[in-house]
Amino acid sequence: MHGPVSSGWLLVAICAATGAYCLLRMRSRVVEQRRAAGGEALMGFGMTVMAVPAAVFTPPGWVWTALAVVFGGAGLHALWAARTGAGHLHHLIGAGAMVYMAVAMAAPAGHGHGGSGTPLLTGTLLLYFVAYVLVAGVRLMPVAAVPGVAEGAGWGDRPELARACRLSMGIAMVAMLLAV
């Protein structure tokens, strides 16, 4: 990823921490939360790899192909899951954005890290993720206690933390798309 090294490392830290928390959420008692957390952990760790500053480390070209294949598979899984509800549509768009960024980073114009993408597609994805971040930010505003969530709920069963992770990944996606 192009840009200052310090902001790149901050993005790496945020994405890695989000991915790690999503792994913790996979221990939730709620099946749907576990499924969503798995996809979000994959997204967090994939974004971690992509966010490593190019000035520090440029991965071999096969890494971008591998990321494109992995997120292509995640996108197919989200497409299959979207048949049952719109909740997986965001995962489908996120996986598609990751495939797009991996392909753009593999482009020779970017010297293997931070290539150039299609402006129209980049702009469309930016609009989507900016809107997503704004909506996710509003959802974090304090509300009354969530019914069914016990006071002593474990880390994996805290909806406000899950929302905060989704917000941080959305912000990271905006930052990464700006660098494409």
Rank of each mutant, 00 (worst) to 15 (best):
P60F: 06
P60Q: 10
V63C: 10
W64H: 05
A66V: 12
L67P: 02
V70Q: 08
F71A: 03
F71S: 00
F71G: 01
F71H: 02
G72K: 04
G72N: 08
G73A: 10
L76R: 03
L76S: 03
L79S: 11
A81T: 05
R83D: 09
A86L: 11
A86D: 08
G87M: 12
G87C: 04
L89P: 01
L89I: 14
H90T: 10
L92D: 04
L92R: 03
L92S: 02
G96N: 11
G96K: 06
M98Y: 09
M98L: 14
Y100M: 06
Y100E: 03
M101I: 12
M101N: 04
A104K: 07
A106P: 04
A106F: 06
A106N: 13
A109R: 13
G110L: 03
G110I: 08
G114L: 00
S116G: 13
S116Y: 12
G117I: 05
T118W: 14
P119C: 06
P119H: 09
L120F: 13
L120R: 11
L125K: 05
Y128A: 05
Y128I: 05
Y128Q: 06
Y128M: 06
V130Y: 09
A131M: 12
V133D: 04
A136G: 10
V138M: 14
V138A: 14
R139G: 10
R139K: 15
P142G: 07
A144H: 11
V146A: 12
P147V: 09
V149Q: 10
V149M: 13
E151F: 08
A153K: 09
A153F: 05
W155A: 14
W155C: 02
